[in-house]
Amino acid sequence: MHWILLIIAGLFEVGFTTCLGKANQSQGNTFALWIAGFFLSLSLSMYLLYKATSGIGAVPLGSGYAVWTGIGAVGTVLIGILFFKEPVTFWRVFFIFTLIGSVVGLKMVSH
């Protein structure tokens, strides 16, 4: 259960970075809505990270934080490529896969 919470927390991290990117491109009421989404996603992400790394059977804090940031980093890069027209280069894709491999490796070696 803790790992599921951690994955959802990572997805909310992608949500808050996406909202931040959209807020930077907006103004007026649209800006306010994206900022509200940013703060809501940020709060949920932090709360779920806390829940995933506390209690009996929790994910170790170091591993949890690394996985959380890894999900956020990979997800944010993918959102940037798909929705913000960021460049797709060999090295970006290579390091995304390296990061995914590291996250999977941490899951495999955590108790």
Rank of each mutant, 00 (worst) to 15 (best):
A58P: 12
V59P: 09
P60M: 09
P60V: 07
L61R: 00
L61D: 01
G62P: 13
S63T: 15
G64H: 08
G64V: 08
G64C: 11
Y65K: 10
Y65I: 13
A66N: 06
A66G: 11
V67T: 12
V67N: 09
V67Q: 03
V67H: 06
W68C: 13
W68G: 14
T69L: 14
T69N: 12
G70L: 04
G70K: 02
G70H: 03
G70E: 04
G70C: 11
I71K: 04
I71F: 11
G72T: 08
G72E: 04
G72M: 06
A73H: 05
V74A: 13
G75L: 01
G75I: 00
G75A: 02
V77P: 15
V77L: 14
V77Y: 10
L78M: 14
L78P: 14
L78Y: 03
G80Q: 03
I81Q: 08
I81Y: 05
F83M: 09
F83Y: 14
F84L: 14
K85F: 06
K85T: 02
E86L: 10
P87M: 02
P87Q: 07
P87D: 07
P87Y: 00
P87E: 05
V88T: 14
V88I: 15
T89W: 01
F90Y: 12
F90E: 03
W91S: 11
W91F: 05
W91K: 03
W91V: 02
R92T: 13
R92D: 07
R92M: 09
F94W: 06
F95D: 00
F95Q: 00
